[in-house]
């Protein structure tokens, strides 16, 4: 599997560089503009969790190199494992990088409110959330998968608002869904940083990643090239 990870890195060297430069700009901007730890966590996890997998997996789709990968002496499950490892390594690097930038003198981010067990776990949790959401789609459908996913979400969102408008009132089922989602995120963010809660959060992170890995592996194994 290490050979595969090395291969993925070697073949994406250039993109790593451009991503690094791009993220530098994005994080610096964020650090200068925002002073809210929650905004920082939300924004960094969203950007990292979506942009990095899409950038790297998207390459395979753009250049149609899946045939190359799947012709190598390796099983599909190893290939997926390597992709996961590499993507996580880059994302982890991006997180650390974001924190480093937030620590610089010009940054307005109150780092102490981020660098604590709960803050870091939240960062990793939301990152995993966005990553888990896009990965099976990207693995199965490639770059198109992400576009479909994002567009799909937007369409759902718009539909949601339309329904809310049309049918109004507190009993509207979609409104219930929205409130539930909102409540979910709010609960997580407002969790008491007790040991128990933090462990729960940690478990959720592991579950998210394990679950999406298993789904991605199953999808990739079935994929006809």
């Amino acid at each position: 599997m290490l050979k595969l990870v090395r291969l993925e890195f070697l073949l994406s060297r250039r993109v790593l560089l451009t991503t690094f430069i791009l993220f530098s700009a994005v994080f610096v901007y964020l650090a200068c503009w925002s002073d809210s730890p929650n905004q920082f966590i939300g924004f960094v996890s969203l950007v990292t969790g979506l942009a990095i997998p899409v950038t790297f997996e998207g390459r395979e789709d753009r250049f149609r190199t899946s045939v190359l990968l799947c012709s190598l002496p390796a099983r599909r499950s190893d290939i997926v494992r390597a992709k996961y490892t590499m993507t996580w390594a880059v994302m982890a690097g991006a997180l650390v990088y974001a924190l480093l930038i937030a620590a610089l003198p010009f940054s307005k981010i109150p780092l102490a409110q981020v660098i604590n067990p709960k803050g870091l776990l939240l960062l990793v949790f939301f990152l995993s959330f966005f990553f888990a959401f896009q990965l099976p789609l990207t693995t199965r459908f490639g770059f198109k998968g992400i576009m479909i996913g994002l567009v799909g979400l937007q369409v759902l969102g718009v539909l949601g608002f339309v329904f809310v408008d049309l049918f109004g009132g507190k009993r509207n089922p979609l409104r219930v869904v929205f409130l539930a989602v909102e409540k979910f995120f709010r609960t997580i963010v407002r969790l008491e940083p007790t040991a128990g809660n933090l462990l729960l959060l940690g478990a959720a992170i592991v579950a998210l990643n394990a679950g999406s890995f298993l789904v991605a592996r199953a999808l990739y194994a079935r994929r006809d090239l």
Binding site: L7, L11, S12, L72, P73
Partner: peptide, 30 residues
């Protein structure tokens, strides 16, 4: 697969990578 050399009708590799790097990425598999 370690004993097979596969040549597809339209060879596809990562476009922005030099040939030597592609080869060095593939070599350890064989």
């Amino acid at each position: 697969k370690a004993r097979i050399g596969f040549v597809y009708d339209v060879p596809r590799f990562h476009e922005d990578v030099p040939l030597g790097v592609i080869a060095s990425a593939i070599a350890p598999f064989y």
